[in-house]
Design a protein around this nucleic acid. Sequence first.
DNA 1: CGCCTGATTGATAAGTATCAAGGTCGGTGG
DNA 2: CCACCGACCTTGATACTTATCAATCAGGCG
Lengths: 232, 232
Amino acid sequence: MKDFRRYKITLSDRVKVEVFKQCQIFKDLSVSETRKLAFDATPIVFKKGTFIFRDGDPADFFYIVHEGLVQVYKTSSSGKNITFTIATRGDTLNASALSVENYFVSTQAMNDVTVLRIGRKEFLAFVSRHSSAAMGIIAAMAQRLNIEYEKIVDIVGEEVELRLVHSLYTLASKFGTTLSLTRQELANFAGTTTETTIRVLSKLKKKGVISRSAGRGEIVISNLTMLRNHMS
Amino acid sequence: MKDFRRYKITLSDRVKVEVFKQCQIFKDLSVSETRKLAFDATPIVFKKGTFIFRDGDPADFFYIVHEGLVQVYKTSSSGKNITFTIATRGDTLNASALSVENYFVSTQAMNDVTVLRIGRKEFLAFVSRHSSAAMGIIAAMAQRLNIEYEKIVDIVGEEVELRLVHSLYTLASKFGTTLSLTRQELANFAGTTTETTIRVLSKLKKKGVISRSAGRGEIVISNLTMLRNHMS
DNA sequence: CGCCTGATTGATAAGTATCAAGGTCGGTGG
DNA sequence: CCACCGACCTTGATACTTATCAATCAGGCG
């Protein structure tokens, strides 16, 4: 069984509720309300590299990440991947996909991932009955939209170096100063190529902003203040 | 009074309700429900070039466009403007700004514009009491988010010519084949410069996709099918 | 009539992607 | 246990796209 790329597991109700409480969407809900939803959630494991869903698939489920990292991205017609966010514990993959027939991003496990999922209908019914959940979703989407607006401004208006510094800062704010990312993954996040990313990282290493000694698939920010100063 | 850049006017309740019914956010609400909200709305005129609100201003009002065109954009730190959408009758300027303390885009009247506005508190209260309005907002935001995701993919992954063709197609779908836009406005929408935009338009003229004879501040698409074929 | 905004074209430069060629590490299988 | 293979990292040379700078032109409005 272990060998499957994707399989169901069991989690205690207590643990499930905990995950939901960590999700900003449900922060204004009472525990008893959250419980109702959490009990309906099915835990599923996706092994590293597996798709949770793909751009264009029918949006049948709502997902929350319980464990691990999930890349949320889109592929351009010329084959490039652009990563919009890296979801972790408590993050939803598609609060938006509620109202749309099909997912409009792809999501892929960056390591072994556990998610909780709820059928679309149940989730929709719950949200329309609990206005604070709806307001939570609106707030989360507004925040996301703002981030994407800024990303666009960044890509159009700023140079790659600045974009990469912004990306590093964003990621560090979420994950801390040690990032488990390959250069390629960072490149996709910043909207550039692997080679360019490496060149910029080399520069930053020389300046002492990031650590010279970091294993493969790892980027360590050694001086966060200096990184921030680079963002002006 | 006429000379002010911005002033209140009066509109019949019937007209106000009509505008609200044209807004996709409220399409599932009963007329009597919409009425309650519409009656509270204040009509205001903004003369060409005036800001309705600016990025960073406290988000005190919710706006719907009644008449005219409104540019929704953001300015990068290097001074470039990126236009996200051009709002027209029935479009909201900031369904999102509900949950956020400050606006995160700027909105500017492209010609003389009439909007309806509602105080933030009233609007919030209404939405949390009417779940179908909340669901409408979620749907609208999901759609917008999807558009922005695609824009990012476009900007990072495709060449300027394709981006401009996409932009023209998007605009034509909304406004028809005659666009009242300067080259600069189109450039901002596509995330490029005026000069590059002109060069691409010249090419498209040669191919017969857009009309050679169009006045200043006007772009006429003469062959929409051919434009679509350019998007592959 | 002249000014001001928008449109146009050309020349140049800069920023990045692309292509190419190793180098290094970690894990896997013999 | 060692050797090999594949994934990742790195650096260099080159080409291409597009921004930038500069100059001119055209039309509407006061």
